[in-house]
């Protein structure tokens, strides 16, 4: 599964991916989207590894392509990760 044009996020921009992740994390952490800092390291959200892998999986489905789960270590904030994902289109 390298690409799926029917995925709703297939052509998402960095800003749209960022919004998706903010909404996702706010829901996951049961907090307000405004409290999610896109420049804060992912570890400040204290996601356990199963939730982190779950988020990457849901993101893959939305974007319609495979994401290497380890790249999150190279792009450790929502902002950087969204930009990386948008550039990979």
């Amino acid at each position: 599964m390298t690409s799926d044009k029917s995925a709703t996020g297939a052509t998402a921009t960095a800003e749209e991916i960022q919004e998706w992740m903010v909404a996702y994390l706010a829901r996951e952490l049961d907090t307000a989207p405004q409290s999610i800092d896109v420049t804060a390291p992912f570890e400040t959200f204290a996601l356990d590894s199963a939730s982190a892998i779950g988020m990457t999986g849901d993101l893959e489905q939305w974007l319609g392509r495979r994401i290497d789960p380890t790249v999150v270590y190279d792009y450790p904030t929502i902002e950087e990760f969204s930009e990386y994902l948008a550039d990979q289109r």
Binding site: L29, T31, I36, A40, P41, E43, T44, F45, A46
Partner: peptide, 12 residues
């Protein structure tokens, strides 16, 4: 202190 949620800070 870096965690977003107080509950996470306490658990840590």
């Amino acid at each position: 202190e870096s965690f977003l949620l107080d509950a996470q800070t306490q658990r840590y």
